[in-house]
Amino acid sequence: MALLEYEALSIALPGMARPVLDGIDLTVSAGEVVALVGESGSGKSVTARAALGLFPAGARLEGQVRVDGTDLVGAEATGLRTVRTAKASMIFQDPRAGINPVRRIGDFLTESLRVSHGWAKDRANARAVELLTAVGLPDPARHLNQYPHELSGGMLQRVMIAGALTAEPRLLLCDEPTTALDVSTQAEIMAILGRLQRERDLGLLLITHDIELAAAACDRIYVMYAGRIVETAPTAELFAAPRHPYTAGLLGSSPPLSAPDGPPARLTPIPGAPMGLLDSASGCSFTARCRFARPGVCDQSPPPLEQHGTALVACYRADDLTDAPATLAPTATVPNSTNREDS
């Protein structure tokens, strides 16, 4: 049994033209590092929060999301509490938003141990020092008495990681954990997360907009667009031969850091803008931005996720595209005037 399992999870909000999530299937096993990649509004954060039973208010839910066998859709308070206090933890983008600025670091780290687990103060403090050491902070005993504003963003994110580990969870959900940090700090945080994941055999789900970071850190990648998984594959395969036009488009949009001599080739952006919640599509949601879309095929009904080699791809044209990879290469002209409002 996988540690984290989404089975056809759909979340719909009243007044929106399309579901926020539409039939999400995703698994993370113990010891596995998995990325969920998508742009703003794709539903990746909603997906991550669902694993803690945090659903948008007023949402209509279908399907299941199970953590260590407990289904969180319609879970009772005790079930939710067990998952949140003992099985899964989340790390967010902005460490300052998740910590009380007028309480000390030590209070933050020991609160759940003392309240939920009934530990005595000394024991909880000793554990907090242990955790701060594990995330590589230089002077753990002193940090316990410091306030959040005394630490830099990178140091505070390490405190948040320590906080996420207090309950010894088996599943770590990381929602853009390094997006607010400098690149070299990002490397440090990813190094710490990688080490802890290996040492403790954690299942780790990394939510990110950065497909390069996902490729650098994860075994397997899910790509999400407008509330659906459009492609999933082992990292190497996804990078070498993206099969969904959106995945290929994301890779073509990132300026390469190293390239042959001479001026860099022109980027091939995906035309238009990501789809908002007030836009809907009768077929594949990517049709409006897709250079390979075929009228009468792609705009009829949403394509199912189907096996293509080691990948699962939701695209009616996946076979045509992978048989002729040249068609995915940048072409000279890209339609420029297909901008749509995304709100």
Binding site: V183, S184, Q186, A187, A191, D210, L213, A216, A217, T235
Partner: peptide, 27 residues
């Protein structure tokens, strides 16, 4: 970018995530 001279430039370059990235050595 091809021949970074200063150790800080080298660090910045190495920090950019890519397949085969080694965050441990960067930190």
């Amino acid at each position: 970018l091809t021949h970074p001279g200063h150790p800080y430039t080298q660090l910045l370059l190495a920090s950019v995530p890519r397949p085969g990235w080694d965050p441990d050595s960067i930190s």
